[in-house]
């Protein structure tokens, strides 16, 4: 066979094998993300069922609130770092067909979890202070990434009763749009937008001290700065 034709055929085979390996790596990443998201969703579902029980069947509000407090004690870490992980994995993937489903599942789960915090506050006297980080998903937002790092690395370590959530404003899901409208977040807003306890809105990149001061004003218990 002509060596040039042979080379072309061998190239096709080698490239096909390499792309198959790449697809396998992409699938492993997608699987890992789904596992992480599922854990978060199960927690959420558990809380939802408990709240539902409280609305329909509970006779003793105090006992129901005690269950919810015990659930919170065994809760896994916050899932907002997954927002960055999804972006990073998607960027490193060659084949992204599953990622829209993964993102939809994740964002809906986070939105549900965020709203249920307020439902729990209404049902019980909860000391959880929710913080929502609204970011831009469709295009690069280095300030959003930096804010996520400040929250995860610094604020979360100092303030144990703060629950952090991260949601994009520009992803095509109705609940996200509703939240964005509630907090007046649009493409003109300075990203990221941080909303503390549904009351305080901070636009743009904020330092750890600014965030902690705003959280403490809404009842968060925060320790001293860690080195």
């Amino acid at each position: 066979m002509n060596p040039f034709l042979k080379a072309a055929l061998l190239t096709l085979v080698v490239v096909a094998l390499a792309l198959a390996m790449a697809a396998q790596l992409d699938a492993v990443r997608a699987s890992e993300l789904r596992n992480s998201i599922d854990s978060a969703l199960f927690q959420n579902q558990e809380r939802q069922v408990a709240l539902h029980f409280g609305r329909v069947m509970a006779n003793d509000t105090a006992a129901q609130c005690a269950y919810l407090t015990r659930m919170r004690a065994k809760q896994l870490n916050d899932t907002y770092p997954l927002a960055l992980k999804i972006q990073d994995y998607e960027k490193n993937n060659l084949f992204n067909s599953e990622y829209e489903n993964i993102k939809t599942t994740y964002f809906l789960g986070v939105a549900d979890s965020y709203i249920s915090v307020f439902e729990q506050q209404q049902a019980c006297r909860s000391d959880e202070v929710p913080l929502l980080l609204v970011y831009r998903e469709k295009s690069a937002c280095p300030e959003c990434r930096a804010q996520n790092q400040i929250l995860s690395g610094l604020v979360a370590a100092r303030c144990p009763n703060v629950r952090i959530y991260a949601l994009p404003y520009d992803y095509p899901l109705m609940p996200l749009q509703m939240l964005a409208d509630r907090y007046n977040v649009s493409s003109e807003s300075r990203m990221p937008v941080t909303v503390i306890d549904d009351k305080i809105r901070l636009d743009g990149l904020r330092s750890e001290d600014e965030l902690v001061a705003a959280l403490v004003s809404r009842g968060a218990t925060c320790g001293p700065k860690q080195n």
Binding site: A18, L19, M21, A22, A23, V28, R29, E32, N92, F95
Partner: peptide
């Protein structure tokens, strides 16, 4: 897992 898939090629 944070390696770009294209690196394999």
């Amino acid at each position: 897992l944070m390696v770009n898939s294209v690196v394999l090629v």
